[in-house]
């Protein structure tokens, strides 16, 4: 007997007012409303959240882990992008 799984949803939770939503995990659900209910029951049983986002996992476009080094390489050698690259002479404050 073949079993058809419910679609997978990724769950994002805002833990408190003012913070952004963060990925918490995933759940299976038959539709969007069920996904929200399941996410609530799975991830916020101890009031871990004030807001939940769910999105179909199949809708997420992700970078390729095998390509991580090459993908992020452009940022590696730009040390001048960090404030610590610049020497602040002694006596200069608030810069």
């Amino acid at each position: 007997m073949s079993k058809k799984e419910w679609p997978l949803y990724e769950v994002f939770i805002r833990s408190k007012s003012g913070l952004s939503h963060r990925h918490a995990g995933s759940i299976h659900a038959a539709d969007d409303q069920m996904a929200l209910d399941h996410a609530r029951d799975t991830y916020t049983r101890r009031s871990e959240g004030v807001s939940i986002w769910v999105v179909r996992s199949s809708q997420i476009v992700a970078s390729d882990p095998a390509e991580t080094a090459a993908f992020f390489e452009p940022a590696e050698d730009k040390i001048y992008r960090h404030p610590t690259f610049y020497e602040i002479p002694e006596g200069v404050e608030n810069l």
Partner: peptide, 27 residues
């Protein structure tokens, strides 16, 4: 307003380099 506040946190983190490179040019 949350989304504006969070955008500004990001901006402010990056801004320090901008000011320092300017001061460095003048120095």
């Amino acid at each position: 307003y949350g989304p504006y506040a969070r955008a500004m946190v990001r901006v402010c983190k990056e801004e320090s380099f901008h000011q320092r490179q300017g001061f460095d040019i003048l120095r």
